[in-house]
Design a protein around this nucleic acid. Sequence first.
DNA 1: GTGAAAGCGCTAACAA
DNA 2: TTGTTAGCGCTTTCAC
Lengths: 336, 336
Amino acid sequence: MVTIKELANILGISTTTVSNVIHGKTSEVSLATVEKVQKLLEEYDYTPNINARNLAQNRSKIIGMALFSNEDKYKNIVADPFFGSLVGAIEKEVRKNNYFFMLYVSDDISEIIRYVSSWNVDGLITVGMNRDEYLKIRGRYKKPIVLIDSYAPKDIMDYVNVGLDDEGGGYIMTKYLIENGHREIAFICDNLEGVDYMRYRGFKKAVGEAGIVFDKKNLIIISPVEGETAVSMSEVYEAAQRVTAMFCCSDNYALQVTNELFARGMDVPGDVSIAGFDDNIFAKVCRPALTTVYQDVDRKGTVAVEKLMAMLRGEENPKDEILPVKIVVRDSVRKL
Amino acid sequence: MVTIKELANILGISTTTVSNVIHGKTSEVSLATVEKVQKLLEEYDYTPNINARNLAQNRSKIIGMALFSNEDKYKNIVADPFFGSLVGAIEKEVRKNNYFFMLYVSDDISEIIRYVSSWNVDGLITVGMNRDEYLKIRGRYKKPIVLIDSYAPKDIMDYVNVGLDDEGGGYIMTKYLIENGHREIAFICDNLEGVDYMRYRGFKKAVGEAGIVFDKKNLIIISPVEGETAVSMSEVYEAAQRVTAMFCCSDNYALQVTNELFARGMDVPGDVSIAGFDDNIFAKVCRPALTTVYQDVDRKGTVAVEKLMAMLRGEENPKDEILPVKIVVRDSVRKL
DNA sequence: GTGAAAGCGCTAACAA
DNA sequence: TTGTTAGCGCTTTCAC
């Protein structure tokens, strides 16, 4: 690979001039030189050494994405369509803005901090981070951060979040179930924090408004840990005997549950209705096609990058953005 | 962020010594100094500037993954479970080896070349690349490359490939269909190159061995371009009238096709049997659960990184690795 | 056992 | 309009 210095030597001019031409500061260079240099740039197929440039400019042109993932829950988090979509959308938008995309998956905050510091990452995007985790990173990393799907309390710290109307989603779906005559509804998730908690809140709200007394037995928190889901599924099956509908926190679980119930001889939506959340790529091609809450994951990623870019441009801190949800009615919920 | 120089100044010693301690070359440093330095390293929470290190060492510690993707076919390629799994598995293995993972999606080879050159990427992994594309990159990038799922001719160039016994997969599944009494079988894919072509070859082989005359009408190449798949699906439906089984080149298509047929009032596997390929995360939770050809995508990614690391260590060029396939019998194929 | 100094490739302030 | 030069933070050779 040719260097600026070498090119400068060939032409017997200074590196500054070459550098200026490279950066299009042609106003400071005579037309003749510009042409000479450009010809040579072409000829030698000059490619800048980004490490050198970064070092000189004290930046990196890297947008980092840190996925805070626990191996117990996700053997391979990117294989999950939700995270996969997010990764793809963010990479695309980052590239569009002439930055580079570096992915780092870890369940160790200090590892993530070391990574962003070492690389001098220009901006960071992270998903589902809670208060303590965010504070730790913030303490050591001073450049722009955009959180996705975070519900860390806003009063304690100042951050930019791109989220979803999770509570609204929980609410409209539950309302829909109720309107279809369901009163005994189970809520299925794998934790009660952040996003899932808000969906649950929406669920509770709709249930309350309908004057239904919610039996805590019907809140089923299944274990995502491999080897333990079998037990959880028995619990789900049991619940399916006493409810008429199950609202799952994600399409993944909705599919798993549907599958499990079929395997045990029940029919969906004949015996029990199932609703999901996300509207992932399989929601429409499974059978029964899933009635679910739609969210635009690609947009989530794109918006996150847009916010980051605005911050990088030095604009005033952007506001949070809460993306809307909508219900997608398909075939997994029946009218009673 | 503290620099080595600053730490050296504080202690009134040279940067060399600090650097030596950092790199554990403690044999060259007195115990007393080692301890002094280590204490300071801790205290100031020293984090190396990777850009500087890379510049000095003429490397990058980055493993690049280039996805050669066309927007027509994939709006978001990482959202596809196959590519998502690959990305996740590769990132994980890269991290395990103390490298960093940079993803670059593009349909422009020269852009990819510019990217790897600029960053001085230490090793590159790329998927489904053909002969010309590979040659272009090879011409300008001299560091290790591992291809995944490539069928570029081996005689022309020297490269390392991690692939799958695609032909075998096509063969065993077709044989299974035939054993179950199917003789009119359609083959469905979206191209006839590389991986898909080999699966088709396996298909043809099994069909031939059974003495079945294959009617080219039953080779259906559907268009992946959005807006054109509807037309393709009509063709599929038409074919479903005259065949008893359809072998789809991917689970994605198998699900889409199944769904389409159901939508048009047919039953799977009642009216027509469907087989897939990949055994992706949804194959087992859809209904009917998909009879398909299993491949270990995570392993593909892991092995690719392992090969790259071996090359980086300067070991003799590793040999290609062809991962095995196996059939997974579920409910989408029925015995005639 | 320790340090001085050159150099990686590029940028940018300043001088000419 | 063009060139000189210092410096980004780190590694590494060589001398002491």
